[in-house]
Design a protein around this nucleic acid. Structure first.
Lengths: 138, 138
DNA sequence: CGTTGTCAACGAAAAGTTTCGTATGTTTTC
DNA sequence: GAAAACATACGAAACTTTTCGTTGACAACG
């Protein structure tokens, strides 16, 4: 019936929670078979093998992963970068709970778990400096 | 101390997307009736009145909102603060897509939309200073 | 061989979320 | 007071996401 216009498989949509779990594995391990993903995820998650398979198939349909079918056991690779996904989720979060203010988010993130190391703090300062310089020059 | 053992309806769980939409309205407007929430949300969202009502009832069950039933039209209030919710989502995001590194998130957030004003940047620097001082003193 | 193990592909159940129709009771209006 | 307007509550449909059972193919092993 409804031949679903374009949105479904076109570009990469926002990953669901489970999809994200799998993307994490692919980002960490690199290209992997279903079995490898399943075994990596099994420690925490109790999902069955076919669940992971199905998820990867769905993700393939959505364009979130690409796969190499050369071998019998297909090899999956993330089609969206971690950074791109971070950006997407970040933008979403800022819009949805930080009232559009990303600096609010930064303050909150820094204020909470003071888990930032010295090096990281320095990195952040450097970025701030760079932003200032840029602002002055324009 | 903490007598809350039962997770389901006891404490505030992570709000769903629609629930978040409603919480935003309550945070912005303060305590509101179903009708008020519905009208505020109607501009963008096409949800019907009873949909909003149902959502608020569910949220009430989950402890995300409290309500005053003194009047015929019950008045709902957010039971979780914006800040607390920000914290929760932030922690989730850091864990799920930033590999546990909140400074990674900060860098990404600052690096992207340079929508931070001068005042905000200064605020961020001040917080960094405070963190440094604290670190030295401990 | 034939038995056993591994794999992709479905389909569909199960679980979670969102939406609304309907019932029912209470105010407000004429 | 009867009609209209407005309120809560509920049940269940409509969607979405997650999970798994089953099937058929193929390879590895004995």
């Amino acid at each position: 019936m409804n031949a679903r216009i374009i949105p479904p498989s076109t570009s990469s949509s926002r990953p669901t929670e489970s999809e994200l779990d799998i993307l994490r594995v692919l980002w960490d391990r690199g290209a992997s078979t279903v079995r490898e993903v399943h075994e990596t995820l099994y420690a925490d998650d109790g999902a069955g093998y076919t669940t992971v398979l199905k998820l990867l198939q769905i993700m393939h349909g959505k364009g979130l992963v690409v796969r190499d079918e050369a071998q019998r056991a297909h090899v999956y690779r993330a089609a969206v970068s971690r950074q791109r996904t971070q950006k997407r989720f970040l933008a979403d979060l800022v819009a949805r709970v930080f009232d559009g203010s990303s600096s609010q988010l930064v303050l909150q993130a820094l204020g909470e778990g003071p888990r930032a190391s010295k090096a990281e703090l320095r990195q952040i300062r450097e970025l701030l400096d760079r932003i200032d310089t840029q602002a002055k020059r324009s």
